Simulated assay, not measured.
Amino acid sequence: MSIPFKILATLVVLAWSAINSFAQYGCRVDPAGAAGRFNVTKIYTNQQSGANTNPVRFYSNSSPYDISCPSGATRTTVYAANVSDYVPYTQCFVEYMGSGTTTQPFNYYQNGRLVNFRIANCPIDDYIPLMLVGLAGMGFVMVRRKCLGLMD
């Protein structure tokens, strides 16, 4: 392997590691725990004011993330990717009813479990033409070098 290839491979591995290190956690609520409010899985990340726990277990129902790209999504639409269970298993609660203390589970409409995830843009299909142009350009350069006798 050539030195430039090794450097490029190292940079790709480091970039991939950096992308996956921007993870966060939130409350995943499946339709069964949503009290009939929706029929898709959502992840909530905004802590309910006044409910300070570590880890955060009580969430408001504002700005949830879907766990897959919704239909009609554009490349600026975000979703929760690489979802995995938070360890140890921790139950969480969403959508405070407005009465009682904010740290009591029975004062919330929805329940779920804590998960780790990262935010990703969707869909990747928008980038395929750009990737094909890049690959075609690299192929052209490699063939041209080979024809000119510049490669080993």
Rank of each mutant, 00 (worst) to 15 (best):
Q47W: 02
T45G: 01
K6M: 15
Y86L: 12
A81V: 10
T101W: 06
C147R: 12
E95G: 05
A136W: 02
D125L: 11
N111G: 09
A51Q: 07
Q110Y: 02
C147W: 07
F93H: 10
I128A: 11
G112Y: 06
R113W: 10
P88F: 05
T90Q: 12
V141Y: 12
C122K: 08
I19Q: 09
V29D: 02
R144S: 13
R144H: 11
A35W: 11
G72H: 12
W16G: 10
A15F: 15
C69Y: 05
D85Q: 10
T74Y: 05
T103Y: 05
D152S: 03
F93G: 01
T101R: 12
G112T: 08
T77W: 13
Y44H: 01
Q104D: 13
F117V: 02
N111S: 13
G134P: 04
C27D: 00
A51K: 01
R144Y: 11
I3Y: 04
Y96S: 00
Y44K: 00
R57V: 02
N111T: 08
R113V: 13
G100S: 06
Y89A: 15
A35V: 06
D66Q: 14
N107P: 05
N82R: 15
G139I: 07
L11D: 01
F38C: 10
T10G: 14
S68R: 12
Q48P: 00
N111K: 06
G112S: 05
M142T: 05
P129K: 13
Y89L: 09
C27N: 03
S62W: 00
R145E: 03
Q24L: 14
Y89E: 15
A18I: 13
G98D: 07
W16Q: 13
I124H: 09
C122T: 06
N107F: 01
T74I: 11
P88I: 11
S68N: 11
S2R: 03
P31E: 04
A32I: 08
P4K: 06
G149V: 04
A136S: 14
Q110G: 00
Q110L: 04
Y109A: 08
P4Q: 02
C27T: 03
Q47T: 09
A35S: 15
A136E: 04
D152G: 09
P129S: 10
T41V: 09
T41E: 07
S71M: 14
G149A: 08
Y109E: 09
A81L: 08
G33S: 03
R57I: 06
F58S: 00
T101N: 12
A51G: 06
F93M: 04
A80Y: 00
D125T: 14
A51M: 06
F140G: 15
V40A: 12
N39G: 13
M1C: 08
T53S: 05
T103W: 05
F38M: 06
V94N: 00
T45V: 11
